[in-house]
Every structure is written in structure tokens, then in C-alpha cells.
Simulated scan of single mutants.
Amino acid sequence: MFGMRASAAQRPKSEGEKPFWISYADLMTALMILFLVVMVASLVMMTQRIEAIEQGEKARANDIAHLCQRLQIKAQGLNRDIVVDCRDNRINFGEAGRFGYNDHKLGPDGQTALRQVVPLVIDAALSDEGKRWFKQVLIEGFTDTDGSYLYNLHLSLQRSEWVMCTMLDDRFATTSGLSQEQKRHVRELFLAGGVSFNNAKDSKEASRRVELRLQFYGLKDSTSGTRPVSFAATGAEKCLLL
């Protein structure tokens, strides 16, 4: 009888343990399923985000390519010296855009090429693609390897500043051929910057040149479509380099 009583007393304890272990296993299974669901959802969201970025980059590249190609066709129709490189987004002027030794001024052919290309760049910036992606135009003046680094850096800056002055100075209104509205866009878009001899060509003559580098907003740039004004000038503008 004592054995039967002991067995009867132990039975409820054994039966009480079984529901606990079953519920714990179910809990772990549920947590594992929940973890898998969260991981799958995260992977799907990441995949969609990557696809959206890739599509955005592709659309941006297509817009910039179309903009540059139109600019290239228009420039070729005006002047053969003007070369629009859509791979590097650069505009060079061939021999017309070369400077003399220790000189920061372009000749008449260079001034003519500038007068022709600047309105085209402004039109490109005001196009639908340009309003979305066009950031600015960097005027880069290059030098040869003669002289010290600081000397060439100063000379290259003078060359890029001279190009800016030629477009804006009121004394050269007839030379630049730009209206006041176009000059306003020049102030918004163009930026003068010295380069020195960091990108020398095969010959020293070819190295002494000016180029326009087209810069565009990136996909993540919050300022896209709200281009800031570089500087504002009032009254008559005069440049000491001219």
C-alpha cells in the first residue's frame, strides 16, 4: 500500500512537468519562426532599396548622358575647335583654348569659342535634366612644367580667372556677347579654379590650356534642383586681369 501511495503521489508531479516542457518547445519554435520572418522581410526591404538606388543611378546617368550629347552636337555645329567629352564631362577648345608662354589671356579665337560655348552650357543647365542634376562648371586653367609649383599654381589661377572676367566684365560686353540674364547664370554656374601642371599634356604648348569641367549632383545630394548662387554682383563689374 505504501508503494501504491508513493506512485500515486509522484504521478501528479510527472504529469505537471510535461505541459511546461511542451510550452517551452513551442515558444522556441515560435521565436525561431518570428526571427525567420523578420530576416526575410529585412532582406526583401534591402533588396528593394538596392534596386531603387540602382534604378535612380541609371536614370541619373541617362539624363546626364542625354544632356551632354545634346551639348556636344550643338557645339560641333558651331565651332570645330570646341570638343565636348561626355566620358569625362569636359569641354576643351583645342588650339583656340591655348595660352602663350607666361600669359594668362586667350587670343581672339579663344574668346570667340568661349562666347559660343557659354550660352550652350547655360541652356543645358536650364533644361529639364540640367535643373535636376547640373551643379556647376569649374573653369580649370593649366600650365606647363616650367617654373616652380607655386608659380604655376598662381598662373593657372590667373588663367581661369581671366576666362571668368572675360564673360562678366562690363567693359567687354561686346566681346563676351552675353546678356545680363546670361551673366547672372554665369555667376550661378561658373567657378574659377587653378590647377597648375597636375594634368600636363604631351607638349608644353598643349599643356597651357583652359578647360571647362561639368559637375553634377549625386543621387543622394539634398541640394539637387536648388542650385546655390555662387556670388552676386551689383553695378559695373571690372576685372583687373583684363
Rank of each mutant, 00 (worst) to 15 (best):
L242M: 01
R213W: 10
M28S: 12
H185Q: 15
L34K: 14
D146L: 11
V210T: 08
G16M: 11
L219R: 10
N198G: 09
K74M: 11
E129Y: 13
D63V: 01
N198Q: 14
M164T: 00
F231M: 04
L114D: 06
N62W: 08
R187W: 15
S42M: 07
K105N: 08
D103P: 00
W21D: 08
D109H: 10
D170H: 03
D81N: 15
R184A: 10
E181H: 08
A173K: 03
H154M: 08
I139D: 00
R213Q: 14
Q180C: 06
W21G: 07
V117K: 04
A113S: 15
T143I: 05
Y217F: 15
A61M: 07
K58C: 03
F99E: 02
Q10M: 10
L168W: 03
P228Y: 02
N62H: 09
E161M: 11
S23M: 12
A96K: 04
H66D: 12
V186L: 14
C239V: 00
G3D: 10
R70N: 15
K58M: 06
C68H: 07
S179A: 10
P108T: 13
S160F: 04
W162Y: 05
Q182A: 14
T174P: 00
L126H: 12
S176F: 04
K18L: 12
E129T: 10
R87H: 11
R209I: 03
S156G: 15
W133A: 09
E51M: 11
R132W: 01
T112S: 13
S148Y: 04
A9K: 01
L78I: 12
R208G: 01
Q48S: 14
A65I: 05
S196E: 10
L27F: 12
D221V: 02
S156Y: 07
D170I: 01
R132M: 10
R80N: 13
